[in-house]
Simulated assay, not measured.
Amino acid sequence: MAAFNFTPSDTSLFILMGIPGLEAAHIWISIPFFTFYIISLLGNFTVVFVVGKEQSLHKPMYLLICMLALTDIGMSTSIVPKALFIFWFNLKGITVNGCLAQMFFLYAIAIMHSAILVTMAFDRYVAICSPLRYTTILTNARIAKLGLVGLTRAVFFILPEPLFLSRLPFCANQIIPHTYCDHIVVAKMSCGDITVSRLYGLVIAVIVIGFDLTLIGLSYGLIIRAVLRISSKKANLKALKTCTAHICVMLTAYTPILFSILTHRFGQGITPHIHIILANLCFIVPPMLNPIIYGVKTKELRDKVGKCRRSSLAATDFKPA
């Protein structure tokens, strides 16, 4: 198999070990991986299908939800299928170019995901602070342009990472103790100077997370200030209720990432397989939860999903005479 067509001098392949120390439990670990992935695909494809089909949902807020669903599909698909091949079939081999490509797509989609969350915060700010100007400020065309800006930013920021690594020589030991090609883990396998690559990765992580969280925090600071100026308590709650879905999605997106970063930085006593499991959960759990959150918290989307389901059931049950 591809996992074993490898010699110490073979520089064309890396070996992804999965979760070292828990090899005997790989089959059991694959169960939640597979379950989360299937739920993620079903939920996010449902959101994309319903928003695309229902003309009444062709609005900025729902277009952003659709864009978020597409990034969720891409993010989980970047790592879960390969992890399942490792768990189920012991297919651990991955080419160097395949490894760098996986790294690029995973991190680029993650940065795009963060940009969409920032745009969603801006959408809520405009909806609450300038409701009369909402339709003129946030048009579908403007949302598409903001999405293009987010995509351009993701490609521009992440593309140098695999390019830096592709120019470095790799040592004979090309075993990656992970389920996917993590940037810093791959960089440490190089026999060359990785200072630039490590610094670039750290700077990009700090800039993206710091900048995006600052913009989101600023948006919600202005939202809270506007809500506090509303005299009616009922109107206050109604305004804040429109933000609950986005707040929940932000918590599911950023909390695991920040927790994983902190455990890497300060959790020296934590076993490596815990770090690996946490790193995987950052890219698997949010894509599974996001469509559920928006399905529960967004009445119009929930109603349209129910309508599509009833229509499909009626079409299935219909039998011509």
Rank of each mutant, 00 (worst) to 15 (best):
L57T: 02
T316D: 05
F6W: 05
A253V: 13
D193Y: 14
F122N: 02
D10M: 01
M67F: 08
D10N: 15
M288N: 00
F122E: 05
L165G: 03
A115V: 03
T316N: 04
R142W: 08
L64I: 01
G98W: 08
Y220V: 00
L42N: 04
L70Y: 07
S56I: 09
Y220G: 01
N236V: 06
I292R: 01
T255I: 14
A101R: 09
P162I: 02
P32A: 06
V208L: 03
L222V: 00
L202S: 15
H113P: 05
K82T: 02
F164G: 03
F6P: 00
M120Y: 08
Y125L: 06
G18F: 00
I293Q: 08
V118A: 14
N97V: 15
F104Q: 03
R198P: 04
I175A: 12
M250R: 11
D10L: 00
L100G: 11
L278A: 15
L132G: 04
L68Q: 14
F211I: 02
F49C: 09
F36W: 09
E23M: 02
I29V: 03
R302S: 15
S197D: 12
T46K: 11
G52P: 07
T244D: 07
I111F: 10
M1L: 11
I276C: 05
I116V: 14
I274G: 01
I111W: 09
N44V: 00
R309E: 11
K319V: 12
F4Q: 13
H26G: 01
G221F: 09
D317Q: 09
L146N: 02
